[in-house]
């Protein structure tokens, strides 16, 4: 009996698609579940419960494991084994919990040597942890070799205000971005070392094309006035950025420059 061409072609197609589907079902199945909101404010919670909740967030909503491992060196981010013990010694003058809170909320404030500044603030979308969740994560990190002593009061009350697409207050800088761009390209000579979107070509310092996306206004303002105090981004030479902008730029030029940098998203 002669099998019609349509049947033969259909069978071949089904076998091919079946093979693809079969293999896709054979390999490990990982589903991405939406995170659950955790609220501990006003309730009583033991340190053990807090650590457990923090560990859960570390593995799920926090998406920390994408870059960080515990007990395994990564190429994107430091190994967190023992972070509870060494957090208090990492940044001079800062205790363990203060350092951990700062690392979660302002990751670029201190970059561990040898790693790129890629960590997003965990209380901002898309991670958008709320205050309770940040508290729990800090407790979990403290538990990795240290003592869990973080309280809810250690977490700023403003944390999580803008999470999940809710309205967040926008920072208004009283500067003129256009004039700031002129400062960037002229008096500030920033373009000699940095790229900022369509302007600048220097590669001595980091590309600033998205600086407003990855850094807070506080950091940007402080970095211009005191570059060394804010540390050097991994992979770039230390001590190159002038320390004298506080003296050479006028107040208007400074605010204009900050306003310009905040447009770079």
């Amino acid at each position: 009996m002669r099998v019609p061409v349509g049947v033969k072609v259909g069978l071949v197609s089904l076998v091919v698609m079946g093979a693809y589907s079969g293999y896709a079902n054979y390999i490990p199945q990982v589903q991405s579940k939406p995170p659950q909101e955790l609220s501990l404010e006003g309730g009583h919670v033991t340190p053990a419960q807090l650590v457990k909740a923090g560990e859960e967030i570390f593995h799920t909503k926090g998406t920390c494991e994408i870059c960080h491992r515990v007990g395994q060196k990564g190429t994107r981010a430091p190994d967190l084994a023992g972070i509870g013990a060494r957090a208090g010694k990492t940044k001079p003058g800062m205790g363990a919990k203060q350092y951990l809170v700062e690392s979660l909320l302002q990751p670029a404030a201190f970059i561990v040597e040898g790693y790129p500044p890629i960590m997003p603030a965990v209380d901002k979308p898309p991670i958008a942890l709320n205050r309770s969740e940040v508290w729990a994560v800090v407790a979990f990190l403290e538990s990795l070799g240290g003592t869990v002593d973080v309280t809810l009061d250690d977490i700023p009350a403003t944390v999580g205000a803008g999470g999940g697409g809710a309205a967040a207050a926008e920072v208004k800088i009283p500067g003129d971005p256009k004039a700031g761009e002129a400062v960037f390209m002229g008096k500030g000579t920033c373009l000699a070392c940095h790229i900022a979107g369509k302007v600048g070509a220097g590669k001595v310092g980091p590309d600033l094309s998205q600086i407003a996306r990855i850094q807070t206004p506080d950091y940007i303002m402080a970095k211009i006035l005191n570059p060394a105090g804010r540390g050097t981004v991994a992979g770039y030479p230390k001590g190159v950025m002038p320390q004298t902008f506080g003296q050479t730029l006028s107040a208007k030029e400074y605010t204009d420059l900050v306003a310009f940098l905040l447009t770079l998203k």
Binding site: Y20, S21, A24, N25, Y26, I27, Q29, V30, Q31, S32, K33, P34, P35, P125, P126, A128, G164, G165
Partner: peptide, 26 residues
């Protein structure tokens, strides 16, 4: 993942979870 518009509008529907590769392949 669980965003209609990434970082702006959260998917709060019953289907917010992103399925595993096997289901997607089917």
């Amino acid at each position: 993942q669980h965003w209609h518009v990434y970082g702006v509008m959260v998917d709060k529907s019953v289907d917010a979870a992103t399925p595993a590769i096997g289901y997607a392949a089917n």
